[in-house]
Design a protein around this nucleic acid. Sequence first.
DNA 1: CAATGTAGGCGTATGCCGTACGCTGTCAAG
DNA 2: CTTGACAGCGTACGGCATACGCCTACATTG
Lengths: 211, 211
Amino acid sequence: MPRPRSLTPLQIAEAALAVLDADGPGALSMRAVAARLGMGTMSLYRYVEDRSQLEELIVERVLEPVDTTVPDGDWKQQLLALSERVRRAVAAHPNAVPLTAAHRQSSPSLLRWSESVLGVLTAAGLTGRARVVAMRAVLAHLLGALELEHRAPLAGEGTRRMAALPAEDFPLLAATARDAAAVPSPEEFRLGFELLLAGLDGLVASQARSG
Amino acid sequence: MPRPRSLTPLQIAEAALAVLDADGPGALSMRAVAARLGMGTMSLYRYVEDRSQLEELIVERVLEPVDTTVPDGDWKQQLLALSERVRRAVAAHPNAVPLTAAHRQSSPSLLRWSESVLGVLTAAGLTGRARVVAMRAVLAHLLGALELEHRAPLAGEGTRRMAALPAEDFPLLAATARDAAAVPSPEEFRLGFELLLAGLDGLVASQARSG
DNA sequence: CAATGTAGGCGTATGCCGTACGCTGTCAAG
DNA sequence: CTTGACAGCGTACGGCATACGCCTACATTG
């Protein structure tokens, strides 16, 4: 017989994400989110245990749109496409990148995604320790690539600063930074991921021989 | 003719890192660091512009011990060894991992390290866009692997939780998580990095053909 | 040795933050 | 129509980074 809730978790997540998208990570606060929902600050705590749980809601809202069904193609195309989907979902909310990395473990969507990736790796012939290593390598590369793409883009400030480094101390770094500005992010991602795929190819072949 | 400074930047960095190592990221504050130095809080501001600059000092203190001279061996062994050195330096201060990722761009030591890595890649035959992609792939993998190793270790809580996931929804994830506990971190790092090296091998070969 | 003025050291205060606590009013069930 | 569980929220607390301005130590200069 209690009074009914007036908000869904999804509405909370949307409001928080809206604050984050509009005003940046520094502006994300319980006060700001509550204000955007038209509530008092403390009312938000009827819906969320604490700030960390609010962040989890945001992350799930970011990752939920990821299609986790296994796409067509050979296993390499499948892995690339699955990873590309995560990349796209995250790219829609660049301000949420650090949160996404921090709370990925609590996201049901990312669990489903991981299960799909493992399905692809298993179908490719990997099991046991090799499968563990492959899965973690895919995760590591994806996490690192997202971090680089959004916090240190090839076309960004950091690259420009490196390009301006003294050539006597950092000849290669300066030259490479100048080349870097011409590589678009999606291409960087695809090419980088294909390096990993080539490595996985070797792993699959060696496990096929020994297994 | 002014009064002389009583502290060096290095002493500041050591104090801050000591706080971080001892009491965790949540305990790192201007107050705590100043207290450890035996000063009033505001005195710290005579030495650093703001908290962000304090964090940069910490990061440089973490990365400074990295030997950036190019080791012996073929280019793959060289890349692995260079990356392993960063991994070891960072592993000495696990609480500093997020800071290290965040402020890596400002670290002179990491710039020197990058120059060395580029030297190895260049000697292996890479230039232009291929070199850009290779460098960033190494960085991405390293960043991601550090994040995974320290915030989601294979032997840790998260893995245990995944191993306990319902087998009807996440059969592969649960099984893989059980296998994962048996893979030690150093081995995970080496095997994962070798996947990338195998991929780079292909890139080197293809650039050799086309160049 | 005395005067000087730069800059070190720091007390105070402001405005953020997350959140504990307890009140008030609503509204569905009985 | 009563009722009590709970939504909503005002207030308050402790901690944070940090702006500002005071006092004073001390290397330099005369």
